[in-house]
Every structure is written in structure tokens, then in C-alpha cells.
Write a protein that binds this DNA or RNA. Structure first.
Lengths: 356, 356
DNA sequence: ATGAAAGCGCTAACAC
DNA sequence: GTGTTAGCGCTTTCAT
């Protein structure tokens, strides 16, 4: 099969095809098509536009990015698509990115540090300059490597001590824990249990710290015994890890000698699991036991009883973090060490009962 | 600031740096690093490996892809991150892609056709070869353009008549509607209403068709009056479009003269919204009215009463579709027109009551 | 088993 | 305002 001039199966056309048809040089085409406001006469612009259509030209970003060393994409890595908290975050980022003319591309690490590293390596190899991540890795080496290759990193969650080379964007977890716990106390509860996923993440231990703070303020007794920690952490193929943690751990809690009047779950998905399991056991919420969560995901207002929780403005957080990210990407100077902390807010619904 | 030989801030090193340090040619480095099983002596391999580490080399995929015209990435475009059905689908795809050595990159069109087109254009410009999409666009032009540029497309949902250039992967929606409706009928229901989002999508009208089929089989009366269709379709910034559709439409339904004993919702999120609203109005499910959904998302087993629904094996569907996709990407011959249809399965829980 | 060199599609000096 | 040309980092003939 010989190739002839008027090839029926058109090979993907390039800038030179356009130039040939338009009767100009490739430089002019480049300038007309993406050369900022470089002067190109209206006449040639028209010719080029026409040529673009006749040859069916689609720019090849690969060539452009190779040349300019700039990939206007922001990579987002989250631990799971199952937790609505991250979904809201993505929404926020996405919305802001769109207005700023950036493309976002999202990935799930499936709570797997190895997979996370692989993902980051991929991004690096594609010369993506911006990375926004809720990391599940104990080590920050992947991230620092990303930065030493000229990238910008924004972390939402991290196990390691915050590097001052990252943009840190998080909700104030200490305050969240404190707010939730104070609400329970103000409703007359004293025997309160905490149910949590492993404390490896800094955000988790911060939450607990906030809880302790509140208990201390009121001189309530509170020991490590009162905290039940999930022994495992992974992503199910199909199902909701955190929801199941709630279901499993509340059973363990109920088997204990010590009796509690309220449970604080470190996130809403866990709280929903708890309530779900309690219902199965015919234990009424909040009459028999109160439950409070943290996050305020859509599900929380959908279940019965509607969950009292602490709202994390993740949509806002995403928006603001994205703005910071883009700033860091365009500025050549290092705008590092930025910290963004968003204040949580109590949302009272139906899962906590006044005790006395 | 002059650049000196032993530059402190290392510029990103390339294959030529590696070659220089290893004392070989760039061709050899390329072959050693990614040249399949092209013969390179063990000795030089070692030298190159060493050089890679000393210069801190990270391959630039942009260069590679530009040269090879092959981008081993699969782009996924879904209407929303809020609907767990798609999340399950992504999980399935992701898992399979990982085993096949492909990277997936996901995007949300936010139920916006314009945005969807933009996304597709982006993918095209990045010369991504594989696109798996649940399209919300009325027109297939973006998709056909993608294909005419050498890409492969797999559709999960589409408004247009199926092109035989696509890989079509869907659950059998006609059968789903039929199964759900038959269950209602077998439980003694005759006055059944359907609540649905706009029928613009083919999958929606297929579901309805299936419902009609079931009604016909039993010679039950069923008219367009019994179908309530949401007048709008868009993605909220923050919230669950379909859930709210359920809430809004069930109120409208209840205001009608005709009284129904059962409601069929075309997806679970809608069904959950319906149940939620019914509860607020102190109407008991299933005692006062039965509700059945379609999809079997995790939420369905979490609410009270647990939702009776039709399970769509979206995880499986994702896996199989991904396999097909990759096959199509490696095969130069066109493996088009493949259709994959997965059979749904009734899941009986607590939201449907036997009438007589 | 290795190297030299052409070129993928694009941009950005530098000329005119 | 427009054209010429030298690469960006990589692969891949074609030699040797």
C-alpha cells in the first residue's frame, strides 16, 4: 500500500502541515496558535485558522511540553475514592483549577504506600510540576525527590513531620477533636470512647490530642483504654474500609466491662458504620448511646439518626490549596512552607442526646 | 550567578549525562534502560545502572512518547465522583490496569457536555490512546474525532446510537428494569410509579423499556403518567444531585391523585433520596410504600430500611472493559464493535413489602 | 554489542 | 511581521 499525496487515511497532521497549507513558516503558525500576544497579522491568522481546519490539526502537547519544560497539569493523589471527604476536596481543587486554566488528573493510591510511590514516579516522569497529595507513606522521600526535580508539592495529610518545602493545607484537626469532644461533654457525657483507624497519620493523632485537651479542660478522666484503634489499614476492592472499621470496633467496645454513654469516631464513615451496627443490635442511637463524627460528608445527613458531626470545609480547602499550588507553579521563587489551616465547625443533628 | 561545572543545583539530568558518565553512547543507554530485550552486555548494563544513580537520572516520558507515539495511559471520564457506581467502575478498571502495566488517569466532567469535550480534547493533545468514558454528551463527535486520531474508545453510557467503532461495555439495563419491576409485581404491587432523571441517556430509556416489558408480561396497566422525570440534570458543587432528585420528585408524586403502593427508582442514589424524604414525612417504608432501586451501591445496605435493589457488577464490568481496552490498544488491527454486557442480579433487602 | 545520526512536534532566539 | 534554525530528551534505523 503506497502512500500517495491525497492520503485517505490521514496521518496525524502537525504544525508543518498547517504551515505548508497556510503558506507561512512554522514559527508563525506556532506564534498564532500559542504564542501569547506575539504580533501576527490578522490576515495570516485567518489563513492559519483555515489551514488548521482543512488539515484537521490537533496540537501535540508532548512536543510543546518537551520544549517548554512546562506541564500545566496538577496531579492529585488520594488514598481512596470511597471516602467522600477526598471527593469534596477534589471538587474544590477541580473548580479552582478550571478557572485558572489548569488541568487536574487524579489517582488513588488505594492506601498503599508502594502504589503511591509508583504514582509519584509516574508523575515525575511525565514532568508534571504540581502534586497535591494525601499521603499514606511513612517516608517523605518520594515527595522530596519530586521537589528536588523542580516540582511543587501540597500535602493534605502526612505521616512525617512537615517539611518546610511543602505547602501544607489541612483542617485544624486538634481543634476538630476538641470541638467534638466539648460538645459531648456539654451534653452531659463523661464516659466517652474514641474509635479510630491507626494513628500512623499525623491528622489522626492530632484529633486525639484535641480530644484529650477537651477532657483535660473539664477535668474528666480519660485514658488510653478509652481509645479503640483499628489494627489494620487497607483498601478493600469493593467496600468501605472505614465503615467496616466502625462496625467491627463498636462490637469490641460493647464487650468491655466499662460502659460508655457516648462514642466519638474520628471520621464520619466510621461513625456511620458504628450506627449501622448498633441498629442491627437493637441498640438505639442516641437514646442508648450517643455518637459523634468528624468530617460532615453527605452521607451523614442521609442516615437515621442524622449524624451530629464537625464540618470540615474540604471544598474550600481544596479551592484555596489549589490557588496556592498554582501560585507556586508560576512563581519561580520558592513560595514554600506555606501553611493553610481551615477551622472546623460543629454541626448538630440527631445522634447525640443530652444526658442530664 | 554563573553556572559552573559542578553545579550545586543540579539541572535535571538526561540520557546523555548518563551516557557520558557511563562512558557509552546514548543509544546504548536507551537500549539498556528501555530497549526491550535488545542485546547489551552485562558489563555495560552495570556501568549504566551506576551512572543512572550517580547523576540521579529520571527518564523523561515526554521525550519517549514524542518519539514512539505511544502513551500507555488510559484516560477515564465519568460524570461525577459523587455516584458510587462510577467509583466502583474505576476501582475495577484500576485494578486490571495495574496488572497490565498501564496507568489510568481519571477526570470528572461534572455532567457537563462542554467540559467533557474539553477533557477529551486535552487527552487527544496529550496523545493518550485509550479513553473509557461514561458520556453525558448528546453528540458523539468528540469521540469519533478521538478515534479518527488513532485512539481507542470504550463507552459505558452514551446518549447516541452506538457506533460500531466503540467498545461498548454496559450492564444490561433492559434486563435490570425488568428484574426490578418483576420483583415488585411478584410482591403483589400493581400501582407502581417510576422516578427517574432525564431520559436523554440511552441507559435510562432502556431501564424504562425493561419496566414496561415486565408490566406487559403481567398485563398490568402502565402509562407515561406513572413516570416522573426530573426536569433538570447538573452537578452540584457540593451535594448529591441524584439524591436530591429523589427527595424532590417523591413529594411531587405524593401530591398526585393516583395512589401508588411502590416506587421504582432508576438508581440507588435516587432511591435513597426518596426513602430519606419519606421518613421526614413520617411515611413508613415499606409498610406504607415500597421502594426499589437499581445499582446496589454501598450506601444501599447502610440505610434503614436497607434498600432492595438490583446489583450491577460494576467492579467486574470495569475489569473486563479494561482488558478489552488494552487489547485494542496493543492490537494495531481494529478490534472495534466489541460489546460487553453484564447481567444484573436482584438483591432483596428490606424496602419492599409483600402486599397480599 | 555498540555508536552515529536523524528526527518525533514543538518553541524561541536570532535574523531580516 | 515573518522566516530560519537549533534544540527539548528520547528511540531507532543503519552502520560497524
Amino acid at each position: 500500500m503506497e502512500e500517495n499525496e491525497s492520503n485517505v487515511k490521514r496521518e496525524k497532521s502537525t504544525i508543518v502541515d498547517v504551515a505548508r497549507v497556510a503558506g507561512t513558516s512554522v514559527a508563525t503558525v506556532s506564534r498564532a496558535l500559542s504564542g501569547g500576544n506575539y504580533p501576527v497579522s490578522m490576515a495570516t491568522r485567518k489563513k492559519i485558522q483555515l489551514a488548521v481546519e482543512t488539515v484537521g490539526y490537533t496540537p501535540n502537547l508532548l512536543g510543546k511540553m518537551l520544549k517548554t519544560k512546562f506541564n500545566p497539569t496538577i496531579g492529585i493523589v488520594i488514598p481512596s475514592y470511597q471516602n467522600p471527604f477526598y471527593i469534596q476536596l477534589i471538587h474544590g481543587i477541580s473548580q479552582k483549577a478550571a478557572t485558572l486554566g489548569y488541568t487536574i488528573s487524579t489517582f488513588s493510591s488505594q492506601r498503599n504506600a508502594l502504589m503511591e510511590r509508583n504514582l509519584i514516579k509516574q508523575l515525575l516522569q511525565k514532568r508534571i510540576m504540581g502534586l497535591m497529595i494525601a499521603s499514606v507513606d511513612d517516608s517523605a522521600t518520594s515527595l522530596t525527590q519530586f521537589i528536588s526535580n523542580g516540582g511543587r508539592v501540597c500535602v493534605f495529610e502526612s505521616n512525617f513531620k512537615d517539611q518546610n518545602t511543602f505547602i501544607v493545607a489541612k483542617t485544624d484537626m486538634i481543634e476538630s477533636g476538641r470541638v467534638a469532644m466539648k460538645h459531648l461533654i456539654s451534653m452531659g457525657h463523661e464516659n466517652i470512647a474514641i474509635i479510630t483507624t491507626p494513628l500512623s497519620k499525623q491528622s489522626r493523632s492530632s484529633t486525639i490530642k484535641g480530644c484529650r485537651l477537651a477532657m483535660d479542660e473539664y477535668h474528666h478522666e480519660f485514658t488510653d483504654e478509652d481509645i479503640i484503634i483499628a489494627p489494620y489499614e487497607y483498601e478493600f476492592e469493593d467496600g468501605l474500609y472505614e465503615f467496616e472499621v466502625g462496625q467491627d470496633l463498636v462490637r469490641i467496645l460493647l464487650d468491655r466491662k466499662k460502659k460508655y454513654t457516648a462514642i466519638l469516631a474520628v471520621n464520619d464513615l466510621i461513625a456511620c458504620g458504628i450506627i449501622n451496627e448498633l441498629k442491627k443490635m437493637n441498640i438505639r442511637v442516641p437514646e442508648d448511646i450517643s455518637v459523634i463524627g468528624l468530617d460532615d460528608i453527605p452521607l451523614s445527613s442521609m442516615i437515621t439518626p442524622a449524624l451530629t458531626t464537625v464540618h470540615m470545609p474540604s471544598y474550600n480547602l481544596g479551592q484555596k490549596a489549589c490557588q496556592l499550588m498554582v501560585d507556586a507553579m508560576v512563581n519561580q521563587e520558592e513560595t514554600y512552607g506555606v501553611a493553610l489551616s481551615i477551622r472546623p465547625e460543629l454541626v448538630i443533628r440527631d445522634s447525640v442526646m443530652r444526658l442530664k
